[in-house]
Each structure stands twice: as C-alpha cells, then as structure tokens.
Amino acid sequence: MGVTTGSNRLHGFLWLGAPLLLALCVLAGSSGWGLPNLDTEIGRSILDLRLQRVVAGFLVGAGLSCAGAVFQALLRNPLAEPYVLGVSSGGALGAAIAILSGLSLRFVFAVPSLAFVGSGLTLILVYWLASHGGTASVYSLILSGVIVSSVASSLLMFLISVAPVEGLHSVIWWMLGNLEVESLALLLWAGVPIAVGIVALWLMSPELNALTLGQEMAHYLGVRTRLIVVCGLVLATIMTAAAVGASGLIGFVGLVVPHAARHLVGADHRRLFPAAAVGGGTFLAVCDALARSVIPSVEIPVGVITAFVGGPFFLIILHRKRKAGWIA
C-alpha cells in the first residue's frame, strides 16, 4: 500500500544509519576515542564493557520508545509516555527502598526487582482505581495515574529527605538514569522482557491501530477492547519497568521517539514498532556514547544528554514535518 506520510530518504537513513551509529558508539569511551588495544587484558575488558553498554542502551531505548508508542495509542494522547501512569514513580520508590535499606549491596538484583514490583503494583492500583464501577476510560486512567504517581513521588521525597548522605547520592544518581549495567545477567534480565514485549506488541498492531480510533469504534470493528487494553498496558509496563530497573529514570526517549518514528514511517503500528525500536535504541546508545566521552573521565548522566541533544534534534524534525504523523 502506498504511504506518503513517511519520507523514503529519512526512512532509509534510519535502517542504514542505525548500525553505523551503533558501531561508532563502541568506539566512544571515557578512556578516549577509538578501539581499545585488544592485545591487552584491560583493552579486551574495556571493549566488553562498551559493548555491554551499547547493547543496554539499545535495549532500554527500544523498550522505552515502543512502550511510549503504546501508551500514546491506548490513551490517544500525544503527551503520553511510558511514565504517564506512574509506573516510573512506583519503580523509583521500589528502587529507592532497595538502595536505602542496603538490600542493593547484598543482592545485585535488588534494585531492578523492587523497581519492577513497584511499577507493577502502581499499574494494578491505577487500573483498579480507573475501572472502579465500569470499564477504564482514557481519562480515568490518566487521572488515577497522576494521583497514584504523585502519592508515590511524595513517599519517595520523604525517603530522600530522611536518607543518610551516602544513600542519597546513590538514589539521586539512579534517578538521573545511567546505563552502566553491573552484569551480563542483569542485562539479560532487562533485555528479555523488552524484546519479548516488543514482538508481542507488534503482533497486536491491527488492534492497536483500531484502538487509536477510540474504544467504542474499536469495539464495532470486532476488537476485544478490554483484553487488548489490559494486555497493552501490562506489556508496556513490564517493558518500562525492565528499562527503569536496569537503568533508572531516563526521560524524553519514550515521549519523543515515537513521534519521530511516526514522521518517518506513518502511524500504522505494524511499521511504527520496528522504526521506534531501532530509532529509540540507536538514539539512546548514541546519547550514552556522548555521555561517557564528551568530558574526558567524567560521566554525565545519560538522561541529561537525551533531553539536551534530543530536544533540538526532534524540534527540527517536527518543524519540517509538522503535518505528518500527528495532527494536534
């Protein structure tokens, strides 16, 4: 089917440019640009670390972008993003508990696990509040998301305010977002749910397309709306929780990458998910490469880079193609 909403030149740039950029990311590091000396033990482990980070960046970026696309479709709102229902605040609360209680020093998986539990409980609470006395409408979901999110945030503030100094630093550093994944096991722990989630969501593309017309219209078209909404929210939450658990609160990616992807390939989710995954993954990997190489031997939180570099970049895209993709 002919689609004019995407520009072929930019589209090609995405599929050809992404692998190239990812390869470049491996060359960037706090120890300097270029491939490390692979003849030495240190050189090899530096390369290992960089590869791990590029993979982590790609997975987290892909997960956040696709989760953002789902939230935007299900909530029919251009401002929706992976953190809109409070999944992030709940996850952050869980992670802060893990760090401040000292659990994170004893178990590697404490932070991601508790972040996961926090995110999951938040979604359950939000959905339960929103669907009280009927089906969960878009507005009640957003509203109860905002409420639960602010309650979780205030609990987090409380924990931070009474926290000892050393714990405080770890919590804040975690909240700023950081792709330094401690072990390969942790990477798999986050990567598997993200990869599975993206494929599962991609398979739901026809229903997600219909749901952007509203739950009523989707119902008329034969979609089991409640089932699909719940599945979509659960999958997107799992992916977000996995990303947050692995790397903290990295903002901006999940909000803007889906928009940029729609500009490139159009609104159809069948094409949107692959584009958002590759685009978001590459974007975050590149941002992380900048974060660890811009200032020698100092690492900037990647969340700072995503907004600082990404903002102007996406503004240009939006300015050039305002009409295509999202009309607001």
């Binding site: 089917m1 002919g2 689609v3 004019t4 909403t5 935007q72 479709a73 029919r76 709102n77 251009p78 398979l203 739901m204 593309s205 026809p206 229903e207 397309n209 219909a210 952007t212 017309l213 509203g214 009523e216 219209m217 989707a218 008329y220 078209l221 034969g222 979609v223 729609r262 159009g266 609104a267 159809d268 009409k323 295509a324 993709g325 999202w326 009309i327 607001a328």
Partner: peptide
C-alpha cells in the same frame, strides 16, 4: 457502525483507516 464523527489523533492515511475495517481478518 458509521458514527457521527470519527476523531483520530494520529495521521493515518485514508487507506489505512479503511483497512481498519478488516481488523478481525488481518493476519498478525
């Protein structure tokens, strides 16, 4: 159903909207 009006916040092309009529028969 043909509703009073249909709002889609996303810029689907007309052919893509019409294809949504086939939602239940599409192969995933």
């Amino acid at each position: 159903v043909v509703p009073q009006e249909l709002e889609t916040p996303m810029a689907f092309a007309v052919a893509e909207i019409v294809m949504m009529g086939r939602t239940v028969s599409l192969n995933r």
